[in-house]
Design a protein around this nucleic acid. Structure first.
Lengths: 121, 121
DNA sequence: CGGGATCCTGGATGATACTG
DNA sequence: CAGTATCATCCAGGATCCCG
């Protein structure tokens, strides 16, 4: 790696994911929840429990971890409103929104071809 | 999920990955090696050990498993030549090649923005 | 409401050695 | 050359309880 800017085949050290931007990004976003959160936040801002309810199957713990991770990477921003009771709103950063587009390319492919993918379980 | 074909926010059951094509695809391809293999095979056919040498850090075991997985999903095809010594060549299927395009969208994003991603380790 | 802390499990991955 | 087999390890993820 890494394609297509770098010449492939000509070996490039990639001991860990960070050596390759593509693999790196996939590892940050390729987990079970990140993409779902990003796409949801691409629609509108969400509150914590609002997200928790919208994403079936996610645990509080993983939602917290996912949001913290995305926030830490600069894809999501966390805005606290000192109301009563306190409210926390999550939105995409500009960087996060820019990811929406390439993600939708994958989304389209998935919707168009997922039936062709053989051997589910 | 699942965007954008389905209305987001309006909860859709996604107990496991298979409930959402996008998440499903990300889970099949979002592992540590699959994308690398796919992109490499997008360039030209590869032999087993050729791949093994081209992908730094991969173990024989994981290369085997990754190839088997991709083959099983119909993204990669395995062609055996009963020569001496026997040779095995891996190529992308049509489906596999079709994945190359959306993948390159992510690739471009990664190359353009990976520096903006904060907090490596 | 919006989390944090703790314990635990399975699956993904690696190292090493062996084989047709 | 192209794998298989075995054992060990690591970490995402779930369950549960607690807190301001």
């Amino acid at each position: 790696m890494c394609p297509p800017a770098m010449t492939l085949s000509t070996p490039v050290p990639l001991a860990d994911h960070r050596a390759c931007p593509v693999t790196d990004v996939l590892h940050r976003v390729g987990d079970r929840w990140s993409v779902i959160v990003i796409v949801l936040l691409g629609e509108k801002p969400f509150r914590f429990n609002e997200l928790n309810r919208s994403i079936e199957g996610i645990s509080q713990r993983m939602l917290t971890r996912t949001l913290r991770g995305l926030e830490h990477e600069g894809l999501v921003s966390r805005n606290v409103f000192p109301t009563n009771p306190p409210g926390v709103e999550y939105t995409l950063t500009a960087l996060g929104e820019s990811l929406l587009e390439p993600l939708s390319a994958l989304t389209r492919w998935a919707l168009e071809h997922h039936e062709e993918l053989a051997a589910k379980p």
